[in-house]
Nucleic acid binder design. Structure first.
Lengths: 220, 220
DNA sequence: TAGCAGAAACTTACACCGTAAGAATGGAGT
DNA sequence: ACTCCATTCTTACGGTGTAAGTTTCTGCTA
């Protein structure tokens, strides 16, 4: 590691800081992320980061934003009248991006995303849904329900997020201690794996929601 | 405030510590909750709390558990074959309890709840659903989908959780800065309030999900 | 009633955190 | 060559969770 004195450029940028933060989060987990450690990962003192980010909260908010951007960068526009497959893809892409960066998941759940970028995305979704013939209020409902369900479900799926690891065993880890007499159904689930397929569960629930909303629109 | 020397009883108990923590969380928010402050609220030094709780994480996990318990303490058993209204009540009670204690919401989303109490509740739901004629795997799916959607939706509804307040403005606070040319649909939503009714959105989505699952069972 | 064991509380200490304030350095423009 | 300024580092402060050790009170036994 080359020594650097005060003033010598480290070649940082806002972009680079966020990249490094996302990397650090993915590999070490949220509780381990501190300004000092992130600085160290970039070969820089903690305070240097404050040239690129006003404070840690803003950094975390930015990470959520960035993952959302990753998730939807390639999303096409819906064909007229054909918004259901479009929203389905929306849901699955969001889940995929969140699972790819589980470190930001607790942040995605907690922090309202109202950055300009996020607003632009919302606007685009609403426009797409309207173009496909969905009334505005309903479009807002659908987008929000899909998004909140996806976040909630993926939070549960990711279970203990990295860094929180080991502090709480998940259901499978507890299989041994489970008294079959007291918990016959849970025991059976662990034995048969019935109802433990997150992939299937998510897909099915999304389809139910979309079909339900589509039926509402047909009738109206 | 009466002085107390080492050894003099403060009359604490595990129960009391959790009660105080929940109160503190509800009124000051998660980021403000520290062992020292919670101790102060109980008239005790921080380290005293470690007689009742192994560490802070366990305290937080316990709070989630407690809110879940509050939510479902009065839930009846489902009538045979009539699980839909039962699950609907389950969802609405969960949402109500979470909104009543918004401080634990970010925890509820993040932490897997696998305490003995939580397992007992899961077991009861599964038993109830089976008694109403739902296959085990599907019962597991339904319960989890309802729970994760409720948590996700309520997280968004609570928006910035107390303590996180003001760090991120919500959509309404931004109404002024919104450029109607760039965000015509968002602007219209703020003006007409279409699609901003969380209550209606939640109720409708839950009903769609339950009807969808019920239809699956009918056909099968 | 005296003494003692254990519980319950306090005290001290450590390593770490976010970040405010200011000093130091290097490179770019004149 | 000299100035200016962006970039980085240094120092410092008040806060955090919690390990370790100390003090005091309470209740039991002799």
């Amino acid at each position: 590691m080359a020594e650097r004195r005060a003033g010598a450029k480290a070649g940082l940028s806002r972009e680079l800081v966020f990249d490094a933060a996302l990397d650090y989060l993915d590999s070490h987990g949220l509780p381990a992320l501190s300004m000092r450690k992130l600085g160290a990962a970039l070969g820089v003192e903690a305070m240097t980061l404050y040239n690129y980010v006003p404070n840690k909260d803003a950094l975390l908010d930015g990470l959520v934003d960035r993952v959302m951007e990753i998730a939807f960068s390639g999303l096409a526009d819906p064909a007229p009248g054909d918004w259901v497959p479009w929203m389905r893809e929306f849901a699955h892409q969001l889940r995929g991006a969140l699972l790819a960066h589980p470190g930001v998941l607790p942040l995605a759940g907690t922090r309202p995303v109202n950055s300009p970028d996020a607003l632009r995305m919302s606007e685009r979704w609403l426009a797409g849904m309207r173009a496909a013939g969905v009334p505005l209020g309903r479009a807002m409902d659908i987008v929000n329900v899909i998004a909140t369900f996806t976040i909630g479900h993926t939070l549960a799926e990711a279970g203990q997020t990295p860094g929180h690891e080991g502090s709480e065993p998940n259901l499978d880890d507890r299989a041994g201690e489970l008294d079959p007499a007291e918990f016959p159904n849970l025991t059976e689930i662990l034995a048969t794996r019935a109802g433990l397929d997150f992939d299937h569960r998510f897909t099915q629930a999304i389809d139910i929601l979309l079909a339900g909303y589509a039926a509402l629109d047909q009738v109206a």
